Every structure is written in C-alpha cells, then in structure tokens.
Amino acid sequence: MASHDTKRQSINPPPTRAMYDQLHFSQATRVDDLIWVSGQVGVDATTMQPADGMGAQARLAFGGVQTVLEAAGASLADIVELTTFHTDLRGDIEEFARVKDAYLPDRYPSWTAVGVTQLARPELLVEIRAIAVAGSGDT
C-alpha cells in the first residue's frame, strides 16, 4: 500500500478558540485542499448576541464562513457545497437567498436548505455550513 502524506488540520481563528476549548469542535477541518466548515450562525462576535432578523443573521453567518475559510487559506469563491438550516424555511428563504447571492454572486455552489425546529439558541434563525476546495474558485 502506497504511503500518502495527507495531514488533517483543525482551523480555529483566534476569536473562536474558547469555543474549541469549551465545546470540543473545530470551526473547520482541512485535508489537502478540502475544507469542511462547521455551522456558522448570526451572532455578533463582540457582543455574542444574535442579530435581529434573517438578513442580519445571514450576513453575520456568511461573515463567519468567510473568516474561517480565510484562516484555512481559501475564500467564499472556493465553496462547492452549502447546507443551510432554517427555523422558518418558507418564511425566510427569499431574504436569505438575497443575502446568499450577495456573498456568492456567481459560480453558485450546490445548496441544500433544511427546515429545523430549533438551533443552538432560541433567537437563532439560520445556520450555515460549507464545503470548499481551496483554489477552486480562482478564475
């Protein structure tokens, strides 16, 4: 059997280190060029409070995805699959889609939207997880 020098990296930007230590999960895991980003939510990093409304929460969550991908050596353009979890899928999907399209304006990734009854905190409306391939978004 051939030896393969694949290394698994845990990606935890400095502001997320406390979450890693407390809850024992990484914001992302990178193996070669593949990056799996853990669910990001619409919580303000300074106040640790959820933003008001779907649009604001979606922007913060996409900002979290972007921060984690940059720490992993990738960008939003490298996302190949997006999974989103919504507490009011039917009511909020259009507003969410507008925000998504602002962050991912072309070369749309695969996307699955799932309606759920609850997220980690009752005020949360959406959670975004992503899979990216570093360098794949380069044009």
Rank of each mutant, 00 (worst) to 15 (best):
D21V: 06
Q22H: 13
Q22N: 12
L23A: 14
H24K: 14
S26P: 01
S26V: 00
A28M: 05
A28S: 00
A28R: 00
T29C: 09
R30L: 04
R30I: 02
R30D: 00
R30W: 01
V31N: 09
D32K: 12
D33F: 06
L34I: 12
L34H: 06
V37T: 04
V37Y: 01
V37D: 00
S38L: 03
S38R: 08
S38Y: 04
G39I: 08
Q40D: 03
V41I: 15
V41K: 08
V41L: 07
G42I: 03
V43N: 02
D44A: 05
D44V: 06
A45P: 15
A45I: 14
T46C: 09
T47I: 10
T47Q: 08
T47G: 07
T47R: 11
M48F: 11
M48D: 15
M48S: 13
M48E: 15
M48T: 11
P50Y: 03
P50N: 05
P50S: 10
P50W: 07
P50K: 07
A51V: 03
D52W: 06
D52N: 13
M54W: 04
G55D: 12
G55T: 15
A58R: 05
A58H: 03
A58F: 06
R59G: 01
R59E: 14
L60N: 02
L60F: 06
A61L: 11
A61G: 09
A61R: 07
